[in-house]
Simulated scan of single mutants.
Amino acid sequence: MAHIIVVGNEKGGSGKSTTSMHVATALARMGHRVAALDLDIRQRSFGRYLENRIHHCVKAGLDLPTPTLGDLPAQSPNDTDPLSQAMAQLDPDHDFIVIDCPGSHTRLAQMAHMLADTLVTPMNDSFIDFDLLARMSPEGKVLGPSIYAEMVWGARQGRQAAGAGPIDWVVLRNRLGTQAMHNKRKVGTALTQLSKRIGFRVAPGFAERVIFRELFPRGLTLLDLRDIGTEQLSMSNIAARQELRDLVATLNLPGVKIDF
């Protein structure tokens, strides 16, 4: 069976599509059979990112490793939900399926979380994003899990009832500041405390970099730069590649040996 990686957070702008694209493409470049599924039916950033990649490769004559882009069927026979039907089509032929969820609560996103072997939750390094994970007092004390954490708890309970394995939940701190700012330390302390209470691992994600916005129109990732003729990588690009390497290593996915 394919290992299912779900990238979810009920807030937009946290870097879910960028994370989905880079993880999926990194796995494909390492020789794994990877499928991609975008559940954000309205915005489709992950899906459009992959479509841009396919179109650019055709136009430029490039042969870049690319995940297979799956589709949700418009109609499902025998009352089968569209997500289950899409997964049934993708699962037999792939080692990994990367699912990007919308930045809001939907039935499909809730179902995807129940399927997750690995759950990746990118969040901006602020208490605004932290509020989706936990409620805090004005004094900074963690009072308890918030709406998204409660949804993940429900998904874990559903998997347990179905006899499935546990969810390995990794929270990514995206857009970390380069300096040890007071807010950064406070968010880190709160995340560490919360992780022990509700069961997730904390990992650094991607810093804010212009390169991510520049790559999207051509569907490229950090790992494709040399393939398109970029001989000299900037220090920022090298640092971003290391962030991706660290992220994939932190996910600790089965059968993955990092070679980029």
Rank of each mutant, 00 (worst) to 15 (best):
199 G>R: 14
208 E>S: 13
142 V>G: 00
238 I>M: 14
213 R>L: 11
42 R>E: 06
246 D>I: 05
67 P>H: 03
243 E>F: 11
213 R>S: 15
1 M>A: 15
17 S>N: 12
248 V>N: 04
130 F>T: 01
146 S>C: 04
185 R>V: 09
176 L>Y: 00
163 G>D: 04
12 G>S: 01
136 M>Q: 10
128 I>K: 12
215 L>F: 09
108 L>A: 07
239 A>D: 00
249 A>R: 12
75 Q>H: 13
59 K>V: 10
258 I>Y: 07
116 A>R: 09
73 P>W: 00
30 M>T: 06
212 F>M: 05
41 I>T: 10
65 P>A: 15
74 A>F: 01
160 Q>G: 09
223 L>G: 06
172 L>A: 02
44 R>C: 05
7 V>C: 11
237 N>P: 01
10 E>C: 09
212 F>R: 08
228 I>E: 08
241 R>M: 13
181 M>E: 10
193 Q>S: 02
110 Q>H: 10
229 G>H: 03
64 L>G: 09
116 A>I: 09
124 N>F: 06
4 I>T: 13
47 G>H: 06
2 A>V: 11
33 R>H: 06
17 S>K: 15
105 H>F: 15
170 V>R: 02
123 M>L: 13
246 D>W: 09
213 R>F: 01
64 L>A: 12
229 G>N: 13
211 I>W: 14
5 I>Q: 11
78 N>L: 13
9 N>P: 06
2 A>P: 13
198 I>P: 05
139 E>F: 14
99 I>L: 08
110 Q>M: 10
61 G>N: 00
114 M>C: 14
257 K>F: 08
258 I>H: 11
98 V>N: 06
192 T>A: 12
177 G>V: 10
148 Y>I: 07
11 K>M: 11
204 P>S: 08
191 L>T: 03
214 E>D: 13
149 A>G: 00
248 V>F: 00
167 I>N: 02
139 E>P: 00
191 L>V: 01
122 P>D: 00
48 R>M: 14
219 G>N: 03
128 I>M: 11
30 M>V: 01
128 I>F: 12
244 L>A: 04
37 L>N: 12
124 N>Y: 03
218 R>A: 15
64 L>Q: 12
2 A>E: 10
14 S>F: 10
174 N>I: 08
135 R>A: 08
55 H>K: 15
202 V>K: 02
253 L>I: 00
2 A>W: 04
168 D>E: 10
216 F>Q: 15
180 A>T: 14
120 V>K: 00
131 D>K: 14
98 V>R: 07
129 D>R: 09
168 D>V: 12
187 V>K: 05
158 G>E: 06
131 D>S: 15
191 L>S: 04
213 R>V: 07
47 G>A: 11
23 V>P: 12
118 T>E: 09
97 I>M: 03
